[in-house]
Design a protein around this nucleic acid. Structure first.
Lengths: 227, 227
DNA sequence: AATTGTGAAATTGTTCACAGCA
DNA sequence: TGCTGTGAACAATTTCACAATT
C-alpha cells in the first residue's frame, strides 16, 4: 500500500468500501424478491429490516452512487434493482473461463446462478489428458497449454481458478500476463497479483475456522455483527 | 512484558473483529509455510511482508490474545502456529455434517483441506431417493428426514448446507432446533438464524459481482485494500 | 540493534439527526 | 406526514511511535 499514484490526479475518484459493494449485491437480491412479491416501491426502512441493517446504512450506500429515491415515498423497486445491476456491471455479459475441472471446478461449471447473473462460462481448461477433449455441460475441456491464446480468442474478462494450490500461482501468472484483470480463486493459497488486478479468494477452510473460533469463544468474546 | 494479564479478570468479554479472526487464519497458513521452510522464529515484519499487511497490524492482532513474541527476536514459528490453532479451535476435532449431495455438496465432501484442519465430515444427507444409501468417499448418504436424530447421535457441531436456495431455510431451522450453533451455507440465500448461532454464507455469485464492479469502476473508484 | 507490545493518533466506516421535498 | 439525502457525530479499526526488553 505504498503506491502514491492514486491521490495525485484531478480525476474524481471516490472511495467505496468493500462492505458497501457487498451490500449492493445484497440489496440487488432483496429487490428481486420484493419485485416478485409485487412491491412497486420500497423504503430504506423495509429494505434494512429484511437484511438486518439500518435504514441509514441503506441510504448512505445508495447515496454514493446517486439519488434514486423519492422523498416521502421510497425507492422504485424495479428501477433501483436495475440501477444497482448497472453499478455492479451485471447488466452486461461477462466472458468467464474456468481453469481446473476437478471436484470444485466441475461443481462451479454446473452452478446455475452464474449464468443467471450474466456470467457466461464458455471455456474450461485442465491439464489432465483424460479430461481434455471431453465434454462438460456442453463445453469442451481444453488443454491448459492453450490458455493464453484461448483467453484472448474468447475475450475472457474473468478467470475462475479451481486447480490445486501448488499450480494456482502459475495459472494466475499466465492470466495476468495475458491481460486478465479479475480472478476468482478457489485454491487455498494467497495468490500474488499486480495491484491493477482484482483478486477474490474463496477459502472454505478459513470459513470453517471462523465457525470454529466462534464455537470456542462465543462465551467470552464479543464478535461484531452478532447480537 | 507486564505480569500475565490475559486470564485473571472475571469479565473478560473482549471485542474481536471479524477481520482479526480472518487474519489469524491467514497467519496460521503462513506460519505453516515458514515452518516448512525451516524458520524457527519470524518477525511481525516478515509475516506482514508475506501477507501484504503492516507489522503493526500483525502485532496488534496477536496482542488481543496474549504476548507470544520476544522483544528483539520475534515470534517462535511453531509455537505461534500452535497458539493460533488453539485460539481458532482447530487443534481439536470437529464433527461436521453435510446436507445436500448435489454438485457443490459432492465437491465439498471430496475437499481434502477440511480433514487436514481437523474438520471431520462423517455424515452426508440428501432428499434424493436415488442417492440415499449410496456411498460417497466411504460415507453413506442418509435420508434428510433422519437429520435431527443423526446430528445428535454423531455429536455434530457444524453443519454445511449445500442444498438449493428453496430448501435451505428449512434445513437451517431443523439444525437450529436440534441445537446446532454453527452453519456454513452455500445456498445463495440470506438465512435467518438466532443470534447465538453463527452463520457464514459463501455466495459465489456475490464474489463474481464484486469482480464485475471492480472491472467497471476501477478507473474512477478507489477500492480499499487495492494499492 | 532489533523487535515486541501498546497507548495515542489517524483513518475509515456507521449511525444520528434533521433539512428538504413529495 | 413520511421518507430521502447528507453533513456531523460517533464508533470501530488501523497505523504510528516509542518505551520496554532481549
Amino acid at each position: 500500500m505504498t503506491s502514491e499514484s492514486s491521490k495525485k490526479h484531478p480525476t474524481p475518484t471516490r472511495r467505496i468500501s468493500e462492505s458497501t459493494i457487498h451490500r449492493l449485491s445484497v440489496y440487488y437480491r432483496q429487490l428481486a424478491i420484493l419485485e416478485s412479491e409485487g412491491y412497486h416501491t420500497v423504503s430504506s426502512k423495509e429494505l434494512a429490516k429484511r437484511e438486518k441493517l439500518t435504514p441509514a446504512q441503506v441510504r448512505k450506500d445508495l447515496s454514493f452512487f446517486g439519488s434514486f429515491g423519492t422523498r416521502g415515498l421510497g425507492y422504485p423497486t424495479t428501477e433501483l434493482k436495475q440501477k444497482i445491476a448497472n453499478i455492479l456491471g451485471i447488466d452486461k455479459l461477462w466472458h468467464v473461463a474456468l481453469v481446473g475441472a476437478g471436484n470444485i471446478g466441475s461443481a462451479l461449471a454446473s452452478y446455475k446462478e452464474f449464468a443467471k447473473q450474466g456470467f457466461e462460462l464458455n471455456s474450461i481448461f485442465d491439464n489432465d489428458q483424460r479430461k481434455i477433449g471431453s465434454n462438460h455441460k456442453g463445453i469442451t475441456i481444453s488443454d491448459i497449454g492453450t490458455l493464453p491464446e484461448a483467453l484472448k480468442k474468447h475475450h475472457i474478462e474473468i478467470v475462475v481458478i479451481a486447480v490445486p494450490a501448488s499450480n494456482a500461482q502459475k495459472i494466475a501468472d499466465i492470466c495476468v500476463a495475458t491481460g486478465i484483470k479479475a480472478i476468482l480463486n478457489f485454491a487455498p493459497i494467497n495468490l500474488k497479483v499486480p495491484s491493477d488486478v482484482v483478486l477474490r479468494t474463496v477459502n472454505m477452510s478459513m470459513e470453517m475456522e471462523y465457525l470454529s473460533f466462534y464455537l470456542c469463544n462465543r462465551h467470552n468474546i464479543d464478535v461484531p455483527g452478532k447480537g
